[in-house]
């Protein structure tokens, strides 16, 4: 058994153990508890719901790996969605063309990227704690969004946008495909890009990274800009799924994204973490909520259980490391 675990750890990485065990546990429990759990409907609902939370988690992931955080992800996504919505409305609303949508997507990405870049510049050049900078950025963006929309919805988009939110391609939901592409991109970024290498080095010791010739300020600005861009992708998906934009959409995801990242083995102090375990952790969270839904419970019970799952996984890590230590000593 021990050697099996070791071999698993060697091939998948030690940070994969927690999410994988949680995945197996959730599959077994719901497989037994809910008779129609293993159905196309369950996986369909997971596939359609995963991308929103997933994309926002990817946006949260990079700052977490640098030892920071981006508390403004949800409102950055909203604001990017708003930018897209206005471009669409300015080009005919429900009659807007595909070209207008392309323009709208660019506007969304520009908005998200700009918000992220501002955050990054503030963090890199003032050395203020990222929690503070992004928290005030979050309050500012929320205020800006509410001011611009007067607290209401913006809707009335062309019909083809709904396919982006609800359509399928090759049997897979379009939002899921976009999400999978982003997961792949982030995985490549972290394992093969100079930026990914640098941001991990910054996460465990920014000064040592600077002394080794890494451009730490540039890396920080890029990390938060990329985070903002990923928020914009999430904002566009939300726009397509709800066929409307409202400031506050997805607000409750904010702390869940942090939870998903930690569940996926991201080191809370930064410097260590991979995309794939986080991806598995996201699937676990979504399966948990879909399974409960099947059994007749609502999303709120799932939220509570997400918290419990987090505590259990973290506690298990503590107990297993102290167990390993005590065995080493004797």
């Amino acid at each position: 058994m021990n050697s099996l675990i070791q071999r698993l750890n060697a091939t998948l990485g030690a940070d994969m153990a927690g999410p994988l065990f949680a995945l197996v546990a959730v599959l077994v429990i719901f497989g037994i508890g809910a008779d129609n759990f293993f159905s196309a409907a369950t996986f369909g609902s997971v596939a359609f719901q995963l991308p929103e939370l997933g994309l926002l988690t990817l946006a949260m992931l990079l700052p977490l790996l640098t030892g920071g955080i981006n508390l403004a992800v949800t409102f950055t996504a909203n604001l990017a969605g708003l930018a897209a919505a206005w471009v669409l409305q300015a080009h005919g609303g429900a009659d807007a063309s595909g070209g207008a949508f392309a323009l709208a997507a660019v506007a969304a990405l520009a908005t998200g990227g700009l918000a992220g870049m501002m955050t990054g510049v503030l963090i890199a050049y003032t050395r203020a704690h990222p929690i503070l900078v992004t928290l005030s950025m979050m309050i500012f963006l929320r205020g800006l969004g509410e001011f611009l929309t007067r607290g209401g919805d913006v809707s009335g988009f062309p019909a083809f946008i709904a396919t982006i939110g609800h359509g399928s391609l090759l049997g897979l939901p379009v939002p899921l495909l976009i999400f999978l592409a982003c997961v792949g991109l982030w995985h490549l970024l972290l394992t093969r890009f100079k930026l990914g290498f640098g941001l991990l080095m910054i996460g465990s010791n920014i000064e040592a990274a600077r002394y080794s010739g890494l451009d730490t300020r540039r890396i920080l600005v890029l990390v938060y800009t990329l985070s903002g861009l990923m928020c914009a992708v999430a904002g566009l998906i939300m726009l397509a799924r709800f066929n409307s934009v409202r400031v506050g959409h997805g607000e409750s995801y904010l702390l869940i994204t942090v939870l998903a990242a930690f569940l996926g083995g991201i080191n809370p102090f930064g410097g260590f973490g991979r995309v794939l375990p986080v991806f598995v952790a996201l699937i676990v969270l979504q399966l948990l909520s879909s399974g409960l839904n099947l059994m007749g419970a609502n999303q709120h019970l799932a939220t509570a259980l997400w918290g419990v799952l987090m505590v259990v996984v973290m506690a298990a890590r503590t107990i297993s490391t102290s167990f390993a230590k005590s065995r080493k000593k004797t």
Partner: peptide
């Protein structure tokens, strides 16, 4: 605290200052 990035691996510390030399097509060649 400055010379080496203590929590990171030996390999990552070793290549930290010379990343440009292990690139292949813009990506880090493992």
């Amino acid at each position: 605290s400055l010379g080496l990035n203590q929590p990171q691996s030996i390999a990552d510390n070793l290549v930290m200052a010379s990343l440009d030399r292990i690139l292949s097509g813009g990506l880090i060649s493992l």
